[in-house]
Design a protein around this nucleic acid. Structure first.
Length: 280
DNA sequence: GAGTGTTTATAGGCTT
DNA sequence: AAGCCTATAAACACTC
């Protein structure tokens, strides 16, 4: 079935679910991390239908953010003012769309409660470290994540550099610009100094960027981000390819569960501030 | 008070 | 038919 063109939507409702729309917004942000207000803004800019009755659909969208495991809340730093949290997409949820299409989900993305708690913590921490661009915190998170079973991304691994846009249904979003406010320093408080060690990339960018060689750490308001004329990815975004890359980056971190590849909590009990968690 | 986040309930459409 | 997914509405709590 041919997929509709964006330009044909007009004021008609786009064929995307709120989950897809939210995923689009997050993926098109430089850091794959957006506050709720920016998710709203992205959707309204791209789809005129959503410029009206904002109360109704925004309520629905918030419901989806909370209800669906595929979205992860990243808290702001307590020292930074501002309402609400930041939202990102669960890396394991990238392949929940059938054939990578945003139009249809293969299955609902679900995570067991324990796995959800742990995974959300780690992903929120990684996203926070990436957004903060703070060396000390990055190192600290790096250490934590290494203990949790993450491995350093393979530097020599061949990565696909082109995404299949052959069946383009939605044109590249060229009008969307990175949010103007400076990035929040959304990092957990640290009570101890991390070990000194060479910095190595461990950002959300590095997790899902198509080509690490050309990877640039992007921050809101940075010259690079401001100069970004187009998003890192164009729609239609192929979630399957993205998921494949993620799995390649974390070969030791995943195991097969009924939900697909899941973190190996049972193999490596993570060490948190309050001590190790029980092994299940 | 406005914005944000969570939860519950209900209904319709689709898939198995 | 049953289960799943999604949309919608609403109530409520929390934060700024």
């Amino acid at each position: 079935m041919p997929r509709p063109l964006k330009m044909s939507y007009g004021d008609q409702k786009p064929p995307y679910s709120y989950i897809s729309l939210t995923a689009m917004a997050i993926i098109h942000s430089p850091q794959r991390l957006l506050p709720l207000s920016e998710i709203y803004r992205f959707i309204m800019e791209q789809f005129p239908y959503y410029r009206k009755n904002t109360q109704k659909w925004q309520n629905s969208l918030r419901h989806n953010l909370s209800f669906n495991d595929c979205f992860i809340k990243v808290p702001r730093n307590v020292t930074k003012a501002g309402k609400g949290s930041y939202w990102t997409l669960h890396p394991m949820a990238f392949d929940m769309f059938e054939n990578g299409s945003l139009l249809r989900r293969r299955k609902r993305f679900r995570v067991k409660q324990l796995e959800k708690d742990l995974s959300n913590w780690k992903l929120a921490a990684a996203a926070a470290a990436a957004a903060a661009n703070n060396d000390m915190v990055s190192h600290y998170m790096d250490d934590q994540l290494t203990q949790l079973g993450f491995v350093e991304p393979p530097r020599s691994a061949p990565l696909p550099t082109n995404y299949d846009l052959g069946n383009a249904s939605v044109p590249a979003i060229s009008t969307y610009k990175a949010p103007p406010p400076p990035p929040p320093s959304i990092v957990p408080s640290l009570s101890q100094s991390p070990a000194v060690r060479p910095k190595r990339a461990f950002t959300i960018e590095s997790l899902i960027a198509p080509d690490p060689k050309g990877l640039v750490h992007l921050d809101y308001g940075s010259p690079v981000a401001d100069g970004l004329k187009k998003p890192l990815f164009n729609l239609p975004f192929n979630f399957n390819e993205l998921a494949a890359q993620y799995h390649m980056y974390f070969p030791n971190f995943l195991y097969n569960s009924q939900y697909g590849n899941m973190p190996c909590y049972h193999k490596t009990p993570p060490l948190f501030h309050n001590g190790p968690l029980p092994v299940f």
